[in-house]
Amino acid sequence: MSDDLDTVFAALADPTRRAILAMLLEDDMAVTDVAEPFEMSLAAISKHLGLLDRAGLITRERRGRVTWCKLEPDALRAASVWMQGFGQFDHLDLDALERLIEGDVGATADGAP
C-alpha cells in the first residue's frame, strides 16, 4: 500500500500532471488533445501520461489510430483516506500547505505575516 501511495503522490507532485488530471475531469480525451495546451513535445506529454497510468490515475485505450485517456477517480481513494487521517487533529488547510510547499511560509489567508 505504501508503494502505491508513493506512486500516486509522486504523480500528483507535478503541476503538468495535475493539470492533465483536471482536464480529464471534464471528459475522456485523445492524447493529442491533452497535449494541445502545453508547450512541450508529444513525447514529453506521453511520459507524463505514462506516469499517471502507472499510478492508476488514468487509463489509456487505443481506439483505431487514436489513444484515449480516461480519468480513474477511484485511484485517489487511498490517498484521500490517508489524508483524512490528519483531519482528526485539525482542519487540513490545503491553501496553507500549498504556500508552504511554494516557500511562502510567512503568508496567511488574511495577508498578515
Rank of each mutant, 00 (worst) to 15 (best):
Q84S: 10
R99D: 04
M29C: 08
L24W: 00
E61R: 00
S80F: 07
G56Q: 03
S41P: 09
L57K: 00
D104H: 12
L97S: 06
T7F: 10
W68S: 03
S46T: 11
S41G: 06
E36L: 14
L25N: 02
V105C: 05
A10Y: 15
T67N: 07
D4I: 14
D90H: 11
D74C: 02
P73V: 06
I101T: 05
D53A: 10
S80R: 01
V66R: 05
K47T: 12
A19E: 12
A107E: 02
T108A: 09
A96K: 09
T16P: 04
D3H: 14
C69Y: 01
A79R: 12
A11E: 02
A107R: 08
A79W: 15
A75Y: 08
D93W: 13
I58V: 15
R18H: 04
M23P: 00
F9C: 01
A96M: 09
L21R: 13
A11P: 03
A109G: 02
L52N: 06
F86T: 11
D33A: 15
F86N: 13
L94N: 04
L97Y: 07
G106F: 06
M23E: 08
D53N: 12
S2R: 10
L52I: 00
L57Q: 10
G103K: 13
M1F: 03
K47W: 01
R99H: 09
D110M: 06
L92C: 08
D4Y: 12
A109W: 01
L94Y: 15
A10W: 14
I101Y: 13
E39L: 05
A112K: 09
D74P: 01
A107L: 07
H91A: 15
R99L: 09
R18M: 07
T7E: 13
W82L: 10
G111A: 11
D95N: 08
A10N: 11
D33W: 03
E72P: 05
G111Y: 04
E61T: 04
L76R: 06
S41E: 04
D33Y: 07
F9M: 08
R60H: 00
M23F: 09
T67E: 04
H48F: 02
D95E: 10
L71F: 02
I101N: 05
M83Y: 10
D104W: 07
S2N: 03
L92M: 14
R63D: 04
M1A: 07
T59C: 04
G64Y: 00
D33V: 11
P15C: 06
V66W: 05
R17I: 13
Q84E: 08
E39M: 00
L94D: 01
E39I: 05
V81L: 10
E72A: 02
G106V: 03
R65Y: 11
D104A: 10
I101M: 09
G50D: 09
T32W: 00
F9P: 08
L92I: 15
I20R: 07
A11K: 12
M1G: 07
M1W: 02
